[in-house]
Design a protein around this nucleic acid. Structure first.
Lengths: 222, 222
DNA sequence: ACGTACCTGTAACAATTGTTACAATCTAAT
DNA sequence: ATTAGATTGTAACAATTGTTACAGGTACGT
C-alpha cells in the first residue's frame, strides 16, 4: 500500500510516523480490481475482512425479497465498506456492492485489523471514530425520517442548515435530492415549500433560503 | 466494580480471566447514583467518558428546538449509554438521559477505555461488536422507515418474523407498539391489517399471524 | 361474576401526500 | 445566441394516512 493511499483513507490517516513502517511491512492484505458493473460483494455474504475502497466509485444497494431494489447509496473512494459489520454478531454484508467504474479494493483480514488496532492506538481511534461518525449519521437520518410531515422535515433540515441565524444560506441539494433524502415525492416537496413561502415562514430564491419566522418554523416539528 | 456487574455488561462480559484482575485493579472510574427523575446527561453535553448504566432504568429523549420531545427510548441496565459518541468527531450527547428509578452509573474516562482496549483484546472486540450491533439495529430501523406504505412496512416486518415459513407465528408487540415502531397512527395500522386479511394475504388471531400468500406479501414492499 | 383498564375493529371525515402532466425557468455546451 | 437537458412551479385528481369517536372483546384483579 502506498503512503498516498494510506493517508487518504479515513481510518488510516494521521498515523504515528514511527509506526507506519511496521504498519505497512507486515500487513497481510489482498488487492482486488474490478471493472464497471462487476459485483464486489453480494448481500448476505460473510464479512470476515475489511474491504477498503481505494480507487473508484461503487453502488451499495439493498435488495428486497421480491428482487426490487429498495435503497441505493453511492460510495466514493477512499472509504472502508461496511466497517461496522466486520465485528457484529451477524457479520454478513447487508447490501450488494457493485462497481460503477474501474475500482481497486484492498481486502484486509479481520485478524490483521485486530492486530493493527492492538499495536497502533491511532489506527484504533480512527477506526472507532469512523464507526462512531457513521452511527451519528444514521441517528440523525433516523430522527429526520421519524418526523411525519414534509414541512416538519423541512423545518428540521433548514434550521440545521441555517444554524440559528436569520441570514440567507445556500442549500447544497436540489429539490429532487431533498425529496429523496426525506423519502417523499418531489412535487409534494415543492408544494410544501411554496406553502411555507405563502405563510411567510421562509423566502426562497433558487437554492438560497432565508428563514423569516423561526418560531413558526420550530412549531412545524412535531 | 464487582464481578457480577462486570459479566452482565455487554461490553465487559467474557473477558479473559487472567486479565480480569489487572483489568479491575487499576481502573479509574467513578460511581454515581441518581434518584427517579434526576437528569443524568443533558443533550449537547460533552461526552468524554463512557457512562455504563449498571443498575436501574433510564429514559433517553431527544428534545426539539421548540422544546417538544421528539423521540423517546427506554434503556435498562446493564448497558453502556451512547458508547459510539465517545469517539465521534462531534462528541456530544445527542439526548437527555433521565433516571426512571434509582440508578447506578459507572463513569469511565475515555483515556481509560483506550487503555483497556489496548491491553485487552476481548474488551476491544466486545466494544467493537456492541457498536457494530447498534449500527445494524439502526440500519434495519432506517430500512423499515424508508418503506413508504404501512402495508409495505408490515410486509417487511412480518416476513422477517415468519422467517420464510408459512407456519403461524406470534408477534411480540401489540398494535400500538407496532404503530409506534412504524411511526404511523394506530387505527391506520389496524385498517391496513384488516385490508390485508380481506385480500387473503394474511390470517390474524390476536397476536398470532400466518402468511397465506408470500408473493403478494413481497410485492407490497416497494 | 363484576368492573376496570387495555386492546382491537371499524366508521366517517379531514388532512396530507402521491401521481401525472405540463409550462416556465435556468444551465451549460455547442 | 441557441438549443438540449435539467430544475422548478403548479394544477387536478387519486391514494393513503391521520383524527376522532365509539363499540365490542379480552385480561385481570377483587
Amino acid at each position: 500500500m502506498k503512503k498516498r493511499e494510506l493517508d487518504s483513507c479515513p481510518i488510516c490517516h494521521n498515523l504515528n510516523i514511527d509506526d507506519e513502517e511496521s504498519f505497512l511491512d507486515d500487513l497481510k492484505c489482498a488487492f482486488r480490481y474490478y471493472e464497471k458493473n462487476d459485483t464486489i460483494v453480494l448481500q448476505g455474504q460473510l464479512c470476515d475482512a475489511l474491504y477498503v475502497l481505494t480507487i473508484g466509485k461503487v453502488r451499495a444497494e439493498t435488495v428486497s425479497e421480491n428482487g426490487a431494489i429498495i435503497n441505493v447509496e453511492t460510495v466514493d473512494a477512499p472509504r472502508p465498506l461496511a466497517p461496522a459489520f466486520l465485528f457484529s454478531d451477524n457479520n454478513r454484508f447487508p447490501v450488494n456492492i457493485i462497481a460503477l467504474e474501474d475500482v481497486e479494493v484492498i481486502v484486509i483480514p479481520k485478524s490483521e485489523i485486530v492486530r493493527l488496532m492492538m499495536t497502533n492506538p491511532d489506527f484504533m481511534q480512527n477506526y472507532l471514530a469512523h464507526n462512531a461518525n457513521r452511527t451519528q449519521f444514521l441517528t440523525s437520518r433516523l430522527q429526520l425520517l421519524s418526523i411525519k410531515t414534509i414541512k416538519g422535515k423541512l423545518a428540521h433540515y433548514l434550521l440545521e442548515m441555517a444554524r440559528n441565524t436569520d441570514q440567507p444560506f445556500i442549500v447544497d441539494k436540489n429539490q429532487s435530492e431533498l425529496a429523496e433524502l426525506f423519502s417523499v415525492a418531489r412535487p409534494s416537496l415543492a408544494r410544501s415549500l411554496s406553502e411555507m413561502v405563502q405563510d411567510g415562514i421562509i423566502q426562497i430564491h433558487r437554492r438560497e433560503f432565508r428563514i423569516l419566522d423561526i418560531n413558526k418554523m420550530k412549531n412545524l416539528i412535531v
